[in-house]
Computed example of a mutant assay.
Amino acid sequence: MTDPAAGRPTLTVCRGCCCGSERKSPGVDHAAVLTTLNSAAGESATVRVADCLGPCERADVVVVGPSPEGRRRGARPVWVARTGSARVADALAQWARAGGPGIADAPPAVLARAFRQER
């Protein structure tokens, strides 16, 4: 049996030591942002929560992983900083619904926050 989630983009939401914390991002309703991502992405993307992804100075981080088709087209994961607002969560979900990296162009709210993560 094939996993239906395997063909979708993935939104990996950092909720480790800094991301998702009131200390690092005061006034952000992190639970509401996660709820927005989950409901807006619907069946178009897989939303998962990770512990610490690393770039704590850029909290709140989301990594948008391409679908298998996006990867075949040469797309790589896109790291997005400062995602702690409903507007940015909606933009991320909109992009995922449209196919994500390699399939659809990222919305301006995502492009403005995208960064290269060196490993």
Rank of each mutant, 00 (worst) to 15 (best):
E57Q: 13
E57G: 10
R58A: 13
R58H: 15
R58D: 13
R58E: 15
R58M: 12
A59W: 04
A59Q: 05
A59R: 05
D60P: 02
D60R: 08
D60L: 11
V61G: 02
V61Y: 07
V61N: 13
V61R: 04
V61F: 09
V62W: 08
V62P: 06
V63D: 01
V63A: 10
V63E: 13
V63S: 07
V63G: 01
V64S: 05
V64Y: 04
V64F: 01
P66S: 08
P66A: 03
P66Q: 03
P66W: 12
S67V: 05
S67F: 09
S67G: 05
P68K: 06
P68S: 06
E69L: 12
E69V: 12
E69M: 06
G70L: 02
G70C: 01
G70I: 00
R71K: 14
R72L: 14
R72D: 14
R72C: 07
R72G: 07
R73A: 05
R73F: 01
R73T: 00
R73G: 07
R73Y: 07
R76S: 12
R76L: 13
R76K: 13
P77E: 05
V78Y: 07
W79P: 12
V80D: 09
A81L: 02
A81C: 07
A81Y: 11
A81F: 08
R82A: 15
R82Q: 15
G84Y: 02
G84L: 00
G84D: 00
S85L: 03
S85M: 00
S85K: 03
S85D: 08
S85G: 03
S85E: 10
A86F: 04
R87G: 14
R87Q: 15
V88A: 14
V88G: 13
V88F: 08
A89F: 11
A89G: 03
A89H: 09
A89Q: 03
A89K: 01
D90T: 15
D90I: 05
A91M: 01
A91L: 02
A91E: 03
A91N: 08
L92N: 07
L92D: 11
A93R: 02
A93F: 12
A93L: 07
A93S: 10
Q94G: 14
Q94M: 09
Q94S: 14
Q94I: 01
Q94V: 13
W95F: 10
W95S: 01
W95K: 03
